[in-house]
Write a protein that binds this DNA or RNA. Structure first.
Lengths: 181, 181
DNA sequence: AACAATATATATCATATTGATATAATACTA
DNA sequence: TAGTATTATATCAATATGATATATATTGTT
C-alpha cells in the first residue's frame, strides 16, 4: 500500500493530523504490516488535499505547533474503498536477521548467538503487545483476525528458532565453507 | 540490507553479472527475504566498482548483449563480513493482504473470499518451492535454517487462515461498522 | 533545581528504491 | 508466423526512507 492509501485508511477511522497518523500506524492495528514516516505522510497529505480526497482544518494551539487536522471527503472514502478492492500484491518480508543467518557458518558464533537472542527478545516484545491488544478487545473482526494472525506467526517463529538455533551456532563453531574461492 | 550489501552477498557465492544477481536473489535462498530489481542492482554495482569492492570483466557474446561479470575483491569480501557483523534491524513485513483484511467488514464478502483464496494459493506455491529446495539439499546450515524457517511460517499462516477465514466472511456478510461517521 | 529525555507538531533534503520503459537478439510455443 | 519468454544492460520519473531543523511543554533523573 502506498502512503496515500495508508493515510486514507487511517483517516477512515476518524480525523487526524499527520503526527497522529504516524502514531496510529505505529501503535495501532497497522503496526506489524505497515511502516510510514513523516517524510512520506506530509507529501501524501498534500497530494490528497490537492486531489480533494481529504479536507483540512488548521487548529492554532498555544504551546504546541499548530495542528492541521485532516478529514476524509466523500471522494476520499470512495477512493479508499476502490483501492481496497484492487487485487492484493504478494506479501513482502525483508529480514535482516535471516539474511545474516544465511551466513551463519562464516560469522563468529558469539555474534550469531547474540543476534538470535536479540531476535527472540523482539518476538517476545511483539507478542506482549499483541496479547495486550487482545486483552483490550477489538474494534472489528478484521482487527481481531490480523492480531491473531500476527501472534500465530510470531509464536511459530519463536518455536522454530528455539528448536534449531543450536545447529546454527554449532556450524559457526566448525566452519565448513569459505567466503567463495 | 541495502542493494550494495545484497550484491556483495550474492557475489560471495561466486562471480555473476547483474542479470544473474537478480535471478539468484529471486530464485535462490534470498528469495523470501529480499527483493531487488535491476534499477537497484546496476547503480549498486557501479558504486561497488568505484569503491574497489568488486572487479569487472567484460565478456563479448554473440547473439546476446555483452555481459559484465563482477567478482568480489578482497576488500569486498572484508566489507561484506563487516556488514554482516553489524547489528540487525527489525524484520519488516508489508502485507497488502492483511491490510485489506483489517477492512473485511466494509468490503464485499466475495472479494474477501477471493483474496483469501489467492493468498492460500500463494502460500501453497511458496511451500512447494521451499520443499523442492529442501529435497535438492542445502549448501550450508544457514540455508537449511532459513528454508525451514520460511516453511514453518508459511505453514502456520495457512493453518491460521483456514481456521479463521469463515469469521471474516461472515462479518463481511453482516457489516457492523461504517467507514467513519 | 538543573538537566536530559520524551512528546507534540510540521517540514525539507539528500539518498535509495521502485516500476516503467527502451533496446536488441535468440529461443520457444501456440 | 506471431507472440511470449529469456538473456542482458541501462535510464527515468515517481516514491519512500533516514536524517536533520525548528520550537515548546511535559516528564523523569540526578
Amino acid at each position: 500500500m502506498d502512503a496515500k492509501t495508508v493515510c486514507l485508511a487511517v483517516l477512515s477511522q476518524g480525523e487526524a493530523s499527520g503526527y497522529e497518523i504516524r502514531k496510529s500506524v505505529e501503535e495501532g492495528p497497522f503496526g506489524h504490516i505497515q511502516d510510514i514516516g513523516f517524510s512520506s505522510i506530509y507529501p501524501a497529505l498534500s497530494r490528497l488535499r490537492e486531489d480533494g480526497l481529504v479536507s483540512v482544518t488548521e487548529l492554532t494551539q498555544e504551546g504546541r505547533p499548530d495542528k492541521k487536522i485532516y478529514r476524509l471527503t466523500s471522494d476520499g472514502r470512495l477512493s479508499l474503498l476502490n483501492a481496497l478492492k484492487d487485487p492484493t500484491e504478494s506479501d513482502r518480508v525483508r529480514s535482516d536477521f535471516l539474511f545474516r543467518m544465511l551466513f551463519a557458518d562464516i560469522l563468529p558464533p558469539s555474534i550469531i548467538d547474540s543476534m538470535i537472542d536479540a531476535r527472540m527478545d523482539e518476538i517476545q516484545t511483539r507478542l506482549t503487545r499483541l496479547d495486550a491488544r487482545a486483552a483490550r478487545g477489538f474494534e472489528s473482526i478484521g482487527e481481531e483476525f490480523v492480531n491473531g494472525f500476527a501472534a500465530t506467526v510470531q509464536r511459530a517463529m519463536a518455536v522454530y528458532i528455539e528448536e534449531n538455533r543450536h545447529q546454527l551456532v554449532a556450524a559457526a563453531l566448525a566452519p565448513s565453507r569459505a567466503v567463495a574461492e
